[in-house]
Nucleic acid binder design. Structure first.
Lengths: 302, 302
DNA sequence: TCATGATTTTGTCCTGGACAATATTGGAGT
DNA sequence: ACTCCAATATTGTCCAGGACAAAATCATGA
């Protein structure tokens, strides 16, 4: 009987490292015959690193829309090949340039250089164009490069941190407590991607709104409390592609129901772009630009 | 048969909102007779808001060191009373002042005022004293106020965001790619509290180290990749009190084993303060001040 | 008073079955 | 050829209840 190597991971460690739930890991094992971990002395699953690596890869491809039954039948090499087929989005030529330069800096492990590029571009074209025309396509480019396996997750972290710095700096400089409308921005628990709300906050602050960011992962209960405490006009949530789609609508509906009617609910991010309808009384903002229109609408209604 | 109200939450929603795992929720039900959720038409658990509220309260008290069997027997009122007994830490008089002023600003919903206070104090006493003497006690004060129920979680979020903004600004200004040692800072998945690593980054950057922050929640695998890619001398992790203690040592051991021997591993935060020993070759930094000593040691050894 | 061993508490893991939400497929009608 | 809808397949989450080890607490003796 093989002893599991010391580097093998427990099921909860694999859940942490891959984002696949324990239930899913067990179910795949019986259903598809992968992964089949070793067992430790207590009969508990012990996943060797190769299997964890393959699980990561599969998760990436699933976030890009593929289905597990298809993926399990492919060889490792075929999976690698698939990552190269993840479609590339369209963007303006200058944005493409920016994106490719940034990706290059990331690959060369040059975070300083990247920050400088971002800073320069911000000065060149101003906050609004920077956020809309440069940052949005760059986010997509970085996300896609990661999905294709061209970037490590740590390189994506470095990018995210750098953009956060820049945006927080902008927002802090624009922040004005007397601004209107008063907008609360955050994400629900399980959603870790916070760049979307920062970008939105920068745009809205520029147009004179007062933005309060609660960071990521705020329980609904606390969003409600905060909305009342800060006398908020608009609650803006963001959902990434990785957020389980089936949970978006119920979450929005719950928030809508428990919030006073004269407060608006906005839902943005790639996750909400995949929805074709929103609960009555909530606004879908799949693209950042539409947030500006929504802001004008709000002001027109007062 | 009672229909569960529409506001009742599913077991996974409760897991999200309270941080108690599904297994724990089911086990408590059979073991202690609380919570006992209603069932929906498919026989699945549906937790009414009162029970969720009580679960939140219990989780808070457990993070402060209490045990569930004790808590379930108490009445709601008694639980509320318990939150007031959470011990208050000691600090210098001036830090106490700062902390109480800050708490006041938070309670009064005045984030701008709070930011100004922080900024002023930073100018008054400089980065090092600010981080060591003001921020550390304030973090404790805010955390304890939250555990006592005097602050809502959203107020804690507002505080965290403000401090983050300040620290990032400091770090950006001090950052120097030629600095040494090269330090990688992050937390493991499941650990969301990132203030600790930012504070450490500020202190180390001030002393001429080069700090790279990967933000929170980086899988071990990616930490290793990043450490090699950035030619890192020291990997610094942070564990809060909420991080399951039993997972700290194995995680440190794994990291230590898979990292080349000449790179150091530091473990900080309240979670590592509770440990009494660390795996061979890793350094415990339960208090920020000790990081400075550890830095001197590292330099002495070269 | 302190250490050490016994006992209780507590969280996590296991199996294997059920079910509903989601995605895909195969016509039928335009 | 194309849209719409129903039938079917896929997939994630939930359930029960038993097992076990790590952590915390208690009891005992030096």
């Amino acid at each position: 009987m093989n002893q599991p190597a010391r580097s093998a991971l427990s099921i909860s460690a694999v859940e942490r490292e891959t984002g696949l739930s324990k239930d899913v890991l067990r179910k795949w094992e019986t259903r598809y015959g992968f992964p089949v971990p070793m067992r430790d002395t207590q009969g508990e699953r012990a996943y060797p690193p190769e299997q964890v690596e393959r699980l990561r890869l599969m998760k990436r491809l699933m976030d890009a829309g593929m289905r597990p039954s298809r993926l399990v039948t492919e060889s490792d090499a075929a999976l690698q090949a698939l990552t190269r087929q993840v479609p590339a989005g369209a963007a303006t030529a200058s944005a493409e340039m920016m994106a490719s330069v940034t990706l290059d800096m990331l690959r060369k492990q040059d975070p300083e250089g990247m920050r400088k590029i971002l800073q320069l571009e911000l000065l060149r074209c101003g906050v609004e164009r920077f956020v809309l025309d440069a940052l949005a396509p760059m986010n997509r480019a970085v996300g896609e490069a990661w999905a294709r396996g061209e970037l490590n997750i740590h390189e994506e972290h470095v990018y995210t941190e750098a953009v956060q710095w820049l945006l927080r700096d902008i927002i802090a400089k624009l922040s004005d407590a007397r601004g209107s409308p008063r907008v609360l921005l955050t994400t629900l628990p399980e959603e870790q991607h916070g760049l979307g709300i920062l970008m939105l906050a920068a745009l809205l602050a520029l147009r004179g709104a007062y933005c309060i960011s609660l960071g990521t992962q705020t329980p609904v209960q606390d969003i409600l409390q905060a909305a009342l405490a800060h006398n908020i006009d608009i609650v803006a949530l963001s959902f990434s592609n990785a957020y389980p789609q089936r949970r978006i609508l119920p979450a929005l509906a719950e928030l809508r129901e428990r919030l006073p009617e004269n407060r608006e609910v906005w839902s943005g991010g790639a996750g909400s772009a995949r929805l074709n309808s929103a609960p009555a009384g909530t606004h879908l903002i799949p693209e950042l630009e539409q947030a500006l229109k929504a802001l004008m609408n709000w002001r027109g209604a007062r």
